Simulated scan of single mutants.
Amino acid sequence: MEVLSSRILLKPRDPERSKKFYADQLGLAIYREFPGGTVFFLGGGFLEIVGQGSGEPSSDVVLWLQVRDLPDTVAELVERGVPITREPRQEPWGLHEAWIADPDGTRIVLVEVPEEHPLRVDTR
């Protein structure tokens, strides 16, 4: 299988509220808009807010967003009124993580990869 592009699709209960959260509070840039949906840049992929969902979000769905500087990112989000659901900490696997949630409760993990972590070290 050859993958040319990818995106995550979320069907929020209130699409306009979610669009404002991702655009205004998280500050994600919009890639494109179309009737019934908005696609945001999400690092190497995309996040599409489309349609309207009717159920509760699953705890099985988590967005993992790598950021350059976790303390600065958390401070910026707090200034924008985003509640931090779990304060930054170093995980046993070596990543620095903080948690937030979108308006529907979808967990968003903010991750900083330390310089010495295997994800950043060339092991060749």
Rank of each mutant, 00 (worst) to 15 (best):
E2G: 05
E2A: 09
S6F: 11
R7G: 15
I8M: 11
L10T: 00
S18G: 01
Y22L: 03
Y22T: 07
Q25C: 14
L26M: 08
I30Y: 00
I30C: 04
Y31Q: 13
R32H: 14
G37S: 07
T38W: 05
T38I: 09
V39T: 11
V39R: 06
F40K: 01
L42Q: 06
L42G: 04
G45S: 15
F46W: 01
L47S: 03
L47P: 02
E48T: 05
Q52W: 09
Q52G: 03
Q52K: 15
G53S: 10
G55I: 10
G55P: 12
E56R: 14
P57E: 06
S58K: 10
V62G: 07
W64Q: 04
L65P: 02
Q66H: 14
V67I: 07
R68Q: 15
L70W: 02
P71V: 13
P71M: 06
T73I: 00
A75F: 01
R86L: 15
P88R: 14
P88V: 10
P88T: 08
R89G: 11
Q90N: 12
P92I: 03
P92C: 08
W93Y: 15
W93P: 02
G94Q: 06
A98V: 02
A98L: 05
A98Y: 02
W99M: 13
D102Q: 15
T106L: 11
R107M: 14
R107D: 14
I108C: 00
I108P: 02
V111I: 15
E112R: 12
E112P: 12
E115P: 08
E115Q: 13
E116F: 10
H117N: 07
P118A: 05
L119Y: 13
L119S: 07
V121E: 13
D122A: 11
D122I: 12
